[in-house]
Structures are given as structure tokens and as C-alpha cells.
Design a protein around this nucleic acid. Structure first.
Lengths: 208, 208
DNA sequence: CCGGAAATGTTATTATTTTCACAGGGGGGT
DNA sequence: ACCCCCCTGTGAAAATAATAACATTTCCGG
């Protein structure tokens, strides 16, 4: 039980997507060098990343595409389905609700919550929009593990606090702000501005 | 001219946002410990990150809020405005177009492109939607430096190739796939599924 | 059945990033 | 003017991560 770099986990997710695409093409075997090429990585890193979790390949041969993908999916915790709610039915919340990629990877979006009474009662790709007051009740009753926060930053901490109180296990936050959660709750931030600003820094970064 | 960790740049962006909020509150001085608290970081790291670029503080006192923020903004390359196009006028593209945070940080979204003739001619928060055929022409003529790609993954590489040919400097890609660009073009991927899967890994990760 | 090519798993090395500790400069009170 | 507290900047140490190198295993052809 050693510590695994978070970057490794991110890469495993990418490997899984790539290996999945090979599986669909009917390819049976793949080498670390081929995976590396498919994901813009290095063969050594692919092998190292996988080696944290066991021996999945055959020396001299490579990896069985199907079983490798199953193993990675298991490692990532995707062999069970996860119940998700999205808070915020604006454009971003709607985009996330409609996004097929989540379904495919085992995430069930069961509801969207919003404080706009005009939106309540509508559906987004079949997912109902509920009033924000019902958030805690729903999270508890439906055993929701993951909350995706797509509200304006002013409301984000409050929404997260309510999710935490209702027993959420993990939060994916899109609001551009720092959120505090107790240590047993997992949180990740997807910060659009930060990403853009890393780009602008790199574009100008010959001076340093 | 030493190498600066990318994580440092990401944190500078967050510092800037935090320090900007202090500025709005009329706070004049801030210490590294206070910044650290505001962004869930450590004081030493705040100081180290800033020290890559110079000495911005006063020993025994702290940092002047206003000038610190100006310095960070300059470091991040945000003292000039950047011209941006968004490709894809779906929910995600619309959300990005409407997002105020970009404007505030110096990003001008000049156009959205889509291949849906029903959307062409409409506007999103005042930003016009143009047909995708006009992409290259527009990028060249309007001197667009940054392209934000919010199209289905099947089209992403093609769109990026076209942006690159038209002379784009940087790409922010939201499509869940690996994109190849020549080395002089900056690219960053915002991969929603990867972020969710890091969460699920962490939720189950007592076994490793 | 043997030898060579191929590709993994693993150890060692190198590079990078974070954390720690403290010297140095600055301001305010007495 | 001096002392003491405060907080930065920085060099050294520790921790973490990436890369390289290689020993080992497998397959295949002759």
C-alpha cells in the first residue's frame, strides 16, 4: 500500500479511454510503446503507472486489450456505478447533464438542482430539474455519492456545505473559487480561468 | 531564466484571484500566511512561488495588495488583452461564451463557430455565431491568439488542425481526447471525465 | 530445441517540487 | 536609539516523480 501519484491516476483514465477505443476496433494486443504513442506519453511511464497496481502484461508480448481495460476500470473504481447530482441548470450544468461521456463511464446523473422556479419541472436529456430546497433530502434518499457544482462562485461554498451535510462523498467544483470541505470528502476543482492563464503565461514566457 | 513549475503558474492564477478579492474589500496589505489560508496552501509555497519572479514583498510587513496583484497579472501575461474564438456553440460552448470570468481577466471572445446552420447568425451574450467555414479567415484577419475547442471529440483534432494552420498560438481543448499540435502551439486539455475518475479512485483507494 | 527479437517489470538514477529552517530587513513602541 | 516582534526571501534538505537502463520472460522461426 504505497502512495500513488495523482498524475498517474489521471493518466490511467486516459489510457483506459485509449485502450477502450482499441477494443472497439477489435485490436487484441497492445504494447506500452503503442499506448504511449496514442496518449502522447512515454512507454516507460505507461509501464510504471500500471506497475503500481500489478502485472497486467506478458513479457515479449504486451497487454491484452480487453483485460487491461477491465483492470484499469476496476482500479479507477468504475466497476460500480456512481450516483451523481448536478447543481446549477445554467449552460454549464446543462452541458454536463447532457454529456454522454459520464454515462458511458458509469456515472448516473439522477437530478439537476436549481433555484430558478422557471427551470424546475423541466428536464435536460431526461434528467429532471428539482428545486434547490430538495437537495439534501434527495442526496440522502437516493444515496448520491458525487455532486457536481456548476453554480456562480458566490453560491458555491454554500452549496458544497449543504452537500457535505447531506453526506456526499465527493465534489467536482466548476466555480472559480477555493472551496473548503472536511477531509473525508474528496474535492476537485476544474478552473477554466486558471487553465487559460497558464496558456497566456506560456505564450509570453521567454522573459523568465 | 530558470524553469518554473507549471503548478506554480496555476497557483499564481489562484493567488491573483484571491488578492484581487482583497483589493475589492479595500485591504491594503497581506502576508504570505494570509494568502495561504485564503487558497488552502502553505505560506512557504506562496513565498517560493512569488520568489521565482522577483521580490514583491517587504520583510516584516508583507505584500502590498494592489501592486502584488498587478505584478502577478503581468507575470501571467494578462496585462494585454487576448483575442479568443470558441468553436462549438453547444451547451458547453455557450456556457464558455457567456462566462464573465474570461472578460474580467482580459480575454475577448470575438466569435463562436458552429457547423449548425440553424445557429449561425444568432448571438450568445452579444457574441456572433459564424459558420465553421469562416474559421481560418476570421482567425487570421482578427489576429486571434487563443482557440477554445468545445466540439464532440470526433471533430476535435480536425478543428485544432485548422486553427493551427490559421496561425493560432494556443488551444484550450474540452474534448475528451488526445490532441496533437506542433511544438510552438500551446495546448491544454480540460478533461471532465478524468477529473471525475480521479475522484472515484480516491473514494475507493484504501486497497492500494 | 535453440537463439534472437520483442516487450514487460523493476531497480537505479536523475530531475523536479515541496517543505523546512533561518538569516536578514523593517517597523513600532518605549 | 534601541529592542523586539514580524514577515520575507532563500539555501538546504526532504519528498516526490519521471526517466533510463537492464534483466527476465515470451514467442517464433529454423
Amino acid at each position: 500500500m504505497q502512495k500513488i501519484p495523482e498524475a498517474t491516476i489521471g493518466r490511467l483514465s486516459v489510457y483506459s479511454r485509449y485502450v477502450g477505443s482499441l477494443e472497439k476496433k477489435g485490436i487484441l494486443t497492445v504494447s506500452s510503446a503503442e499506448i504511449a504513442e496514442g496518449v502522447n506519453g512515454s512507454p516507460a511511464q505507461v509501464r510504471k503507472d500500471l506497475a503500481y497496481f500489478g502485472e497486467f502484461g506478458t513479457r515479449g508480448v504486451g497487454y491484452n486489450v480487453e483485460s487491461l481495460n477491465q483492470q484499469i476500470i476496476k482500479i479507477l473504481g468504475l466497476s460500480i456505478r456512481w450516483n451523481v447530482v448536478i447543481i446549477g441548470a445554467g449552460n454549464l450544468g446543462s452541458a454536463l447533464t447532457q454529456y454522454k461521456g459520464f454515462q458511458n463511464r458509469g456515472f448516473n446523473t439522477l437530478a439537476v438542482f436549481d433555484n430558478d422556479v422557471n427551470k424546475v419541472g423541466l428536464k435536460i436529456s431526461g434528467v429532471p430539474i428539482y428545486p434547490i430546497d430538495r437537495l439534501e433530502e434527495f442526496v440522502k434518499k437516493e444515496n448520491i455519492q458525487i455532486g457536481i457544482v456548476a453554480v456562480p462562485f458566490q453560491y458555491a461554498q454554500e452549496v458544497v456545505d449543504r452537500l457535505v451535510k447531506a453526506g456526499i462523498k465527493a465534489v467536482l467544483n466548476f466555480a472559480p473559487c477555493v472551496i473548503s470541505v472536511p477531509s473525508q470528502v474528496e474535492i476537485r476543482n476544474v478552473d477554466l480561468t486558471v487553465n487559460l492563464e497558464i496558456l497566456t503565461f506560456n505564450m509570453g514566457a521567454n522573459k523568465f
